[in-house]
Design a binder for these strands. Structure first.
Lengths: 352, 352
DNA sequence: CTGAAAGCGCTTACAG
DNA sequence: CTGAAAGCGCTTACAG
């Protein structure tokens, strides 16, 4: 077991100095401190009470908890299941509240008895992930990607399926396809937007800025987009939403306006959880298994901790595309001339 | 601070014996063990590493985690926010996995560095809550009620609003009102069933067993109930669901069958979260703020821990009843004679 | 079944 | 800025 004693030996200092470095005593030389912490990380140190060592996996949120959102809830559920095999407990930790400004992430986590962390981050807190990785503390980031070879992450790759979704609409005969996403510029949504553009470009449909809609990720946002789309002249015959709540809100609004899906308009959603099944018609959607992301992250990380391995994981789990009932041919009077007919739809079989 | 030393003094034994009792050494006399653990609980003991004491609030699940369910996710989110004020971290702990058969709950929690627990329980694990309370470990149970004066709990009381919901339907002119609930006999659902019976009884409507439907709490279960109701001869004109997913599933099925809500049938749901807003029409529902339950539980418990108070909390937070768009008068050709006309509906104002 | 004493992991007051 | 030594909280081998 790693202990102040073993670290002291490796660092060539006394246990006094190790203890000070771990507890952020300002007297200790920054170089020494850094060397000690690096060794602590390399050797998988956690403080122990007598012979007892707790195996806590930190689930870190950088600001407010967003657990009430279905995605985060599903992710955490997966983390819990993933941490089970190596008998880790999951400690929910708020970085913003408790981390002292002058202490390192490693010091903070060790103080909480945490051996490794799963980080759920927003775009603005990416630098935190990079800092934790830089320190060498065992970590994996959920649902983001990093170019740095030091940062472990696991995320869903929705690019291919987003292209597929848009091309499915094109194959059904749609030419004017709107794109709805939320107003936070996170990577997922930007990826899907890029995929949307790529798909229409590949199919010689000119990109039209006026078909792109950004709203807050709420039911109301989705409703707004639907209303805006339906009131356009030369309106789109289909909408691809990059966000679950937007899609559900649009469907709800369509019912309220007596607009038939897919007869009047086709809708493709994005789904992290099971929301696509909660509405009528069940949504054709690009789907991501949020629970699987959390599970995989927690299982891989805790296995490495138990085996004292250290490896950078950069994993992308592809999404899947499910055809359900919210998509069909565009209204006959709205089919543009020049649409290629008799497209092959057999490649898009209904999943599940 | 409570320590092995202070406990030893109070118990009149050596610190050796205290340590053994805490760690479940079989050599220690059961009476002694019990006395030591009782004092540990009374004095709010947690093991410390050097000067460091972590303040962990345990979120205990007794078997599988059910965090993926919206109710549990909302509750946990509330717990997290409630634990914030006293700077507690929340540790997710699986009793089934880690608790050794011969150790007490107190020993288990102390081993994990937990100072108090919020328990989310099912009917079958009620005895666990009673056992924890019996040991005197700081605890509060979520969403259950106990007659024992030793068990702290906080739950939503949906009885009054369930009666109100059914009477609202009656005031709208409904006489044949179906009741749908899930197949697990938990207290919440049994309460709502009792309230349903009480409401119709109070209004001189005979109870009809054939209008009571039990299904698994899934969208499919709700769909099944709707189909069964619509195919009955002399069918009900309204359904009161005691479960969120059942109500949503019924609405979805109604859309699929082209049944108009509320023109063809009125639906009242039960909502723990925001599901009532996700469908069209927005559901009239008896609502419970799951986040508030968790918040209140965690805040009260952590405050008591910080102030070294000990008090049994038995709190019922009333639900609220929101009238939205899924309820209206029964179809004209289905109004039974003898319905009192011109009922006063102003008491049921649309909330929000 | 219990305790005095040795020991372990960690922290800290003291000395330099 | 660092370490030897004392000390704290806890555990455990030994003795009874």
């Amino acid at each position: 077991m790693s202990s102040v004693r073993s670290i002291a030996k490796l660092a060539g200092v006394s246990i006094t100095t190790v203890s000070r470095a771990l507890n952020n005593d300002p007297a200790v030389n920054p170089k020494t401190r850094e060397r000690v912490l690096a060794i602590a990380n390399r050797s998988g140190y956690v403080a122990s009470v007598g012979r007892r060592v707790n195996s806590n996996l930190g689930f870190v949120y950088t600001d407010e908890s967003t657990l009430a959102h279905p995605f985060d809830a599903a992710v955490l559920d997966g983390v819990l299941r993933g941490a089970d095999e190596q008998r880790f407990d999951v400690l929910l930790t708020n970085l913003k509240r408790d981390k002292r400004p002058d202490e390192s992430y490693t010091q903070f986590f060790l103080r909480k008895g945490i051996r490794g962390v799963v980080v759920r981050t927003m775009r603005e807190s990416r630098f935190i992930c990079e800092a934790i990785a830089e320190e060498g503390f065992p970590m994996i980031v959920l649902s983001e990607r990093f170019s740095s070879p030091k940062v472990s992450y696991i995320d869903g790759d929705s690019r291919a399926d987003s292209i597929r979704a848009v091309e499915y609409l094109i194959a059904l005969g749609h030419r004017r396809i709107a794109f709805g996403f939320h107003s936070i510029p996170d990577r997922d949504h930007m990826d899907r937007f890029a995929a949307y553009k790529e798909a229409i470009d590949k199919n010689n449909i000119p990109f039209d800025e006026s078909l792109v809609f950004r709203q807050r990720y709420t039911l109301a946002g989705g409703a707004t987009i639907l209303k805006m789309v339906m009131s356009m002249k030369g309106r789109p015959t289909a909408i691809f939403f990059a966000d679950p709540l937007l899609a559900v809100g649009a469907v709800k609004q369509a019912h309220a306006l007596n607009i038939a899906i897919p007869e009047d308009i086709s809708i493709i959603g994005f789904d992290d959880t099971d929301l696509r099944y909660g509405v009528h018609p069940t949504l054709t959607a690009v789907c991501q298994d949020a629970g699987a992301l959390g599970f995989e992250a927690a299982q891989r990380l805790t296995r490495m901790l138990t085996n004292r391995e250290k490896e950078v994981l950069q994993i992308s789990i592809p999404t899947f595309f499910e055809v359900h009932e919210s998509t069909g041919a565009p209204p006959v009077n709205m089919v543009e001339t020049g649409t290629k007919d008799a497209a092959d739809l057999t490649q898009y079989k209904t999943a599940v």
